[in-house]
Amino acid sequence: MLAERVLDGDVRAAARLMRDIDDRMKSAVDELKVLYPHTGNAFIIGLTGPPGAGKSTLVDQIVAGFRKKDLLVGVVAIDPTSPFSGGAILGDRIRMNRHADDAGVFIRSLGTRGALGGLSRSTTDVVNVMDAMGMDVVIIETVGVGQDEVDIVSAAHTTAVVMVPGLGDDIQAIKAGILEIGDIFVVNKADRDGADRTARELSAMLEMRHPEEGEWFPQVLKTEGSRGVGIDELIAEFDRHHDFLKTSGHLQRLTEERNAKLFTDTLRDQLFEAVFGAIKEDGTYRQILDGLRERTTDPYTAVERVLAQSSFS
């Protein structure tokens, strides 16, 4: 069984299990059952932001920062899967190579494989494997996102939104989407022109939130990932947010949300696979497609009939 070897810290077993999870092997579910009681200890940080903002370089620096404190660090780095070939080039590791032979760091690259929210559907389970392995901190780097890929917020405890100067005016900053989800905002490449202005506009946007007494108020930090400038401050801010989550009771709420999401996502997947698999198997699906083509049925009625025949209604 892979799970027992994972709990013993076997890197190959962990890597293999992550593969089985990503490839949706049935056996992975049984392994995850064994690991689940050993999860819930890692501090999970999400890093999101547009393509080219320097997320991977920042992750590399953050890993180094936590390693200085002797913490074990896992990284899950997500890059897009081609919608045409199903292939992918996962290139986030390029920026993190110096940690490749550090036994205290485990880096895993994942393709989105069709998921649209900035993560892959396997992300939470892969994070759980790292958690069960005993990683103190797990960092999730999302794909480069635009405005609305916000799944990271329910996958991580602390979400940092990484911006760079020159991406748009302050109207971009008050739109809905990724700018609503940051616990920490980072203006990276802060040596570039316009960094101060970008930081000011983000701060102005955040001040419009009018947080209640005792609520978290996100700060805007400036960093230069390539030179390591501002990283100590960023790590301190991660720690400050983590402490806030623990003392305010928010951590428990976040954990509940994360648990609920894992449960409902799994339920949705399994229900779909069970029902869809059954109707494909017994020919019902073919009949439905025929009926839709002839306009003798409609998708809504067809679904109702399928559900009526299953044991859930």
Binding site: V11, R12, A15, R16, M18, R19, T81, G87, A88, I89, L90, G91, R93, I94, N97, A100, D101, F106, I107, R108, S109, G111
Partner: peptide
């Protein structure tokens, strides 16, 4: 699925990345 690790890799970095990435 390609894990692209880029330039100037030591054999140690290559092998441990290959293992972590399965």
């Amino acid at each position: 699925e390609v894990i692209y690790t880029g330039l100037h890799q030591t054999p140690e970095q290559i092998v441990s990345a290959a293992i972590q990435e399965d």
